[in-house]
Design a protein around this nucleic acid. Structure first.
Length: 835
RNA sequence: GCGAGAGUGGCGGAAUUGGUAGACGCGCAGGACUUAGGAUCCUGUGCCGCAAGGCGUGUGGGUUCGAGUCCCACCUUUCGCACCA
């Protein structure tokens, strides 16, 4: 390389000759023309599927958070390409759903008009970011060619008996006018608009994901995922071991006046209903002093005595009408006595049955045995309603008579007041008592899961219609696969109303269809499906985009899936990732996929914060990437985003920091431009280069982008120290190292160095490992544990030699004031002299 | 309340198995080149101190020759979950 004539180009105006806007525009065009980012799915060697979570194309455009995630994923993908993999990096749009619909309503535009223009704008912004995306295989969930297959997925689940319809109490958002999944309710308020959620009773389609709970949980152990993500899924699946116990309900008249039940009441007991409870503490059965049923429990109406009927009914109505927010967040206990009693199978005592809303119908059996002595909630309830509290566990220093100091004792201990089980430790009592109760046919050990079925119905417009037809004679009929897609009609009145039915239900011309089976008059399902269904299978579609005869091509899928690396936000740790795993499992069980886990490796990226807060429009701290790219170039912006913190933790965005990264690129540019081939490269510089190649090669695949960049900056400092001119061999490999981070400048410099093929098809640089081995080491010398200096010594130095050298060194020797009492010598590292 | 993570200069952040705390960058200070500098380059920059030296990784203990790193208690904070029996 020869330096351009500075007097001609004007060093003051353009000191380095690096103009990102020119370089980046040029390479965008080149890459598009040459198809550099198109993946040869059929023939490419060492397939590597680098997936990033696709965005919802909002009207506001791409924000820095999106770009941060995409850039991190893109760097990983580009690095893998430099490692010799054939990398497939697709990107598409998750454009259905309530976000789009609400925005469309707000601005008074139709989503069918809005979404395409949003997508165009996103695409424009994404193109500038320099992503290695294969746009020939993009997808858009609102495209009938895509959602045809989303509907197909629904039909597969329906065929397997995994999709069913039931009437259920659902969360109703009065503001969004739609049903929300439990997962979309945060603390009783609508996740989206914050409005107070109410209960409604509607017919809904559900997927039986709960049947897969054990598998979804167990498979986690084998996945290479961020630990926090796995933990979030474990918590959500919520496995707990315990027992189901049966309590016989007794006729209060027959047993009136007796505190225990004699064998003579057996006849009454035979026809009496039983209440089944789930407990994780069967060991505390002797302390169960009452039962509680959820207000919705079907047995409430059966067992309630005539005297209590009115008051219990009133309580049930009240809790049914109560919005879920108050019910779930108010800790104040309420409840009513049903007038009925049950027999505690351990003590044979009669215990009252209450109804209270602190027991939830959707968990366990909807009924509990209350052990107020050893459960905080039961203690609170028992205290409020003056129910007996019995101690059956004694902790350290406690006995059967130790009073409760205003709180339940939930700690570990041994059983008391428990007849033949006295003094048994809680740990073994769980098993022993369960076996005992099993022998009495009063219960059995069970594992319970918190995960409940996935409600996929949405009474909204902007989603794929659920492909079901209702016929008076044939019943529920799935739309035949060859009649897919069920196209979402373009209707002007897509606004939901208070009726609780989808806007599609107002369009008779759409929902009136002949039954596919018998031809009689029938009607379509007018609900659309949850957006999470669109995204629960999209990764299967990318490699098969363009195949309109199948959802995913078997051979291509076999070659490219499961996804090698998936990068996305931890906000989808539970829902999206769990649903994707579930759908994959189902398709696997049907023999359509040969794997049952879709994402071999998943890493969650962090969040970009600014001015101490997560970027959001409401906080007014959003950054428009366009402005930064205009000013600094995409390469500097990408590199800066990755430099501001560990990728998996996110970082603090400040305008000030970007200049340092830009300077780094400027210096790299200048070094390449000015480099010479005269003479030999400097050994010390080459040593540093070897260390840098090693470090960047280790940090990049572990997503430690910030330290990889720091290492490259450090090397540039070494390379240019004292304004020296770089030798070509000293700087050429840096172009390859920086390529995943700053692809445009790397491509330009690589070409400047005379290469014809793309830098991304060059191999990752190698280094001479022998350069990293040195004969001398820095020996740290401490005196009395305090560091006093370091000595450059031969690697093979012995303890005695080191001690002599340390004593001889004036700066260190002066601290060695007497005979060494003790000498610690770590060969090759450190000498500590204790005097 | 439960679960997981995090507290390091003026700021963002680095620190293999415990072994020179503060890499890299921002900012700041000084200098060079300049008509100019908000460009570029060089040098310096944890705190106190003229220095020798001392003190320093949220707080208080502990283990160790030696602790940002390990142990115990506590404080602060972020993110999940939240009456899940």
């Amino acid at each position: 390389m020869t330096a351009p004539d500075d007097s001609m180009t004007g060093p003051i105006e353009e000191p380095l000759g690096y103009d990102p806007s020119v370089v980046e525009a040029r390479w965008r065009q080149r890459w598009a023309d040459l198809g550099t980012h198109k993946t040869d799915l059929a023939h490419g060697k060492k397939p590597f599927y680098a997936l990033m979570m696709f965005p919802y194309p909002s009207a506001e455009g791409l924000h820095v958070g999106n770009l941060f995630a995409f850039t991190g994923s893109d760097i990983f993908a580009r690095f893998q390409r430099l490692q010799g993999h054939t990398v497939f990096e697709p990107l598409g749009y998750d454009a259905f759903g309530i976000h789009s619909e609400n925005f469309a309503l707000k601005v008074g535009k139709h989503p069918m008009e809005l979404i395409p223009s949003n997508i165009r704008n996103f695409r424009r912004q994404l193109d500038r970011a320099g992503l290695m995306v294969d746009w020939s295989r993009s997808l858009d969930t609102t495209d009938p060619e895509y959602y045809k297959w989303t509907q197909w997925v629904f039909l597969q689940l329906y065929k397997r008996g995994l999709a069913y319809k039931k009437a259920a109490a659902v969360n109703w958002c009065p503001s969004c006018k739609t049903v929300l999944a439990n997962e979309q309710v945060e603390g009783g308020a609508c996740e989206r608009c914050g409005a107070t959620v109410e209960q409604r009773f509607l017919e809904q389609w559900f997927f039986k994901i709960s049947e897969f709970s054990p598998r979804l949980l167990e498979n986690l152990e084998r996945l290479d995922w961020s630990e926090t993500t796995k933990q979030a899924q474990r918590n959500w699946i919520g496995r707990s071991e315990g027992a189901r116990l049966r309590f016989r309900v007794l006729d209060p008249f027959v047993d009136a006046g007796s505190s225990t039940v004699a064998v003579t009441t057996e006849m009454t007991m035979a026809d009496a209903p039983e209440i089944e409870v789930f407990t994780t503490r069967p060991d505390t059965i002797f302390g169960a002093t009452y039962l509680v049923l959820a207000p919705e429990h079907p047995l409430v109406s059966v067992i309630t005595t005539p005297q209590q009927q009115a008051i219990v009914d009133e309580y049930r109505v009240r809790s049914a009408n109560q919005d879920l927010i108050t019910r779930k967040t108010t800790k104040e206990k309420t409840g009513e006595f049903t007038g009925a009693y049950a027999m505690n199978p351990a003590t044979c005592a009669l215990i009252p049955i209450w109804v209270a809303d602190y027991v939830l119908m959707e968990y366990g059996t909807g009924a509990i045995m209350a052990v107020p002595g050893h459960d905080e909630r039961d203690f609170e309830f028992a205290t409020k309603f003056d129910l007996p509290i019995v101690r059956v566990v004694a902790g350290e220093g406690q006995n059967a008579h130790t009073p409760f100091a205003g709180a339940a004792f939930v700690g570990d201990g041994t059983l008391v007041n428990s007849q033949q089980f006295e003094a048994l430790p809680v740990s073994s009592a769980k098993r022993v008592l369960t076996e005992w109760l099993e022998a009495m046919h009063a219960g059995k050990a069970v594992t319970n899961y918190r995960l409940h079925d996935w409600c996929i119905s949405r009474q909204r417009y902007w989603g794929p219609p659920i492909p079901i037809i209702y016929c008076d004679s044939c019943g529920t009929v799935p739309v035949p696969e060859d009649q897919l897609p069920v196209v979402l009609p373009n209707i002007p009145d897509f606004k939901p109303d208070d009726s609780g039915v989808s806007p599609l239900a107002r369009h008779e011309e759409w929902y009136r269809v002949p039954c596919p089976t018998c031809g009689a008059k029938a009607r379509r399902e007018t609900d659309v499906s949850d957006t999470f269904l669109d995204s629960a299978w999209y990764f299967l579609r990318y490699p098969s985009v363009g195949r309109n005869d199948v959802a995913f091509d078997a051979e291509t899928t076999k070659r490219w899936l499961p996804v090698t690396t998936y990068i996305g936000g931890n906000e989808h740790a539970v829902l999206h990732l769990l649903y994707s795993r579930f759908i994959t499992m189902v398709l696997h069980d049907m023999g359509l996929l040969d794997f049952e886990e879709p994402f071999t490796k998943f890493r969650a990226h962090g969040l970009i914060i600014r001015e101490g807060a997560k970027m959001s429009k409401s906080k007014g701290n959003v950054v428009n990437p366009d402005d930064y790219i205009d000013q600094w170039g995409a390469d500097a912006f990408r590199t800066y985003l990755m430099f501001l913190g560990p990728f998996e933790e996110g970082g603090d965005f400040r305008d000030a920091g970007i200049s340092g990264v830009k300077r780094f690129l400027d210096r790299l540019w200048a070094s390449v431009r000015d480099c010479s081939t005269a003479g030999a490269p400097d050994v010390e510089v080459m040593r540093k280069l070897a260390a840098t190649i090693k470090k960047v090669g280790e940090d990049t695949p572990s997503l430690s982008y910030n330290t990889a960049i720091a290492a490259m900056m450090e090397y540039m400092n070494t390379l240019r120290r004292g304004e020296r001119t770089a030798h070509r061999a000293e700087v050429e490999p840096v172009v390859q190292l920086v390529a995943p981070f700053a692809p445009h400048i790397a491509a330009e410099l690589w070409e400047m160095l005379g290469h014809i093929e793309s830098v991304f098809d060059s191999q990752w640089p190698t280094y001479d490992a022998t350069l990293l081995v040195s004969d001398t080491i820095d020996l740290i010398v401490q005196v009395g544990g305090k560091t006093r200096g370091k000595l450059v010594v031969a690697k093979s130095i012995t303890q005695d030699q080191a001690l002599a050298a340390a004593t001889a060194d004036p700066a260190i020797g002066k601290f060695i004031t007497g005979e060494p009492k003790k000498v610690i010598f770590v060969p090759g590292r450190l000498l500590n002299v204790v005097v």
